[in-house]
């Protein structure tokens, strides 16, 4: 129960790493504003059952990361609860793979909008609250592609690299206010986002790993748990690779 009685905002909760993080946080006693694109019966039921099981509250919050008005309304809704926010986890993201010369500019801008600008907008809003309360932990989900490059993923990797720059700068600006800011760089994780990757490319990736398998969303969520909890009280401005040791 590393987050007992804490409150967290998590984006991208509908599936993959976000869903696993919602689960791990609530299993560890945290209440969650669970942000997702749009309501589904399955998601609502999932949130309800998880909340009952762990004796916490989980509030689904819906908005489209491409719509700033929707984001603003959602954030106001969160603020109106007038509760402290201990952790913000920026997970929501998207990719459209194409080799560099084939990327339409509107598409690159869209990916930056979702993966970077909207995260910054949310972070501005939430850290204002964190500065007032003088504590908080922000965790940005970047990617190893931001550090290593990734064939056919220019928009994605560059937007995720932007998150790393923001993480380091924000750490320097906010540490004195009691707020830590870190990033995780997951490798190849078994999520829907990677389901579209051809099998031969996946096995090429696995060959380069020290741990010869894909990562699981729950494994990423546990590293997020570490960064959100007091176990990492003196860790800030860092980028932690969770990639099974890719060479």
């Amino acid at each position: 129960m590393l987050l007992k009685g804490k409150n967290a905002v998590i984006t991208g909760c509908l599936q993959g790493i976000g869903k696993a993080t919602l689960e791990t946080f609530s299993n560890n006693g945290s209440n969650v504003w669970a942000c997702a694109l749009a309501p589904t019966d399955e998601f609502e039921t999932f949130c309800q059952q998880l909340a009952i099981k762990n004796n916490v509250w989980i509030k689904p919050i819906y908005f489209d990361l491409l719509d700033q008005e929707q984001i603003k309304a959602a954030l106001k809704q969160i603020a109106s609860d007038k509760m402290p926010i201990h952790a913000l986890v920026n997970i929501a993201g998207m990719t459209k793979d194409a080799i560099f010369h084939m990327i339409p500019m509107y598409q690159m801008k869209m990916i930056f909008e979702v993966n970077f600008f909207s995260q910054m907008y949310i972070t501005q809003f939430v850290t204002k609250i964190m500065i007032r309360q003088k504590f908080g932990s922000v965790i940005n989900i970047s990617s190893i592609s931001a550090l290593d490059g990734s064939y056919g993923q220019l928009s994605y990797s560059a937007s995720k690299a932007a998150l790393i720059g923001a993480t380091r700068t924000l750490s320097a600006e906010l540490a004195e206010k009691g707020i830590r800011v870190n990033a995780l760089a997951p490798g190849v994780i078994a999520t829907d986002m990677n389901k579209i990757v051809p099998e031969n490319i996946i096995s090429e990736h696995i060959k380069k790993m020290s741990i010869k398998r894909l990562g699981r969303p729950d494994e990423v969520s546990k590293a997020i748990l570490f960064l959100a909890s007091d176990l990492s009280a003196y860790v800030t401005g860092q980028v932690i690779r969770i990639d099974g040791g890719i060479k």
């Binding site: 750490s171 320097a172 540490a175 490798g187 020290s210 741990i211 990562g215 699981r216 494994e219 990423v220 546990k222 590293a223 570490f226 990492s232 003196y234 860790v235 800030t236 401005g237 860092q238 932690i240 690779r241 969770i242 990639d243 099974g244 040791g245």
Partner: peptide, 14 residues
């Protein structure tokens, strides 16, 4: 940390 290996974690206050 079951999927973390070969990493350096700085615990240095930034």
């Amino acid at each position: 940390s079951s999927y973390i290996t070969g990493q350096v974690l700085r615990v240095d206050g930034g």
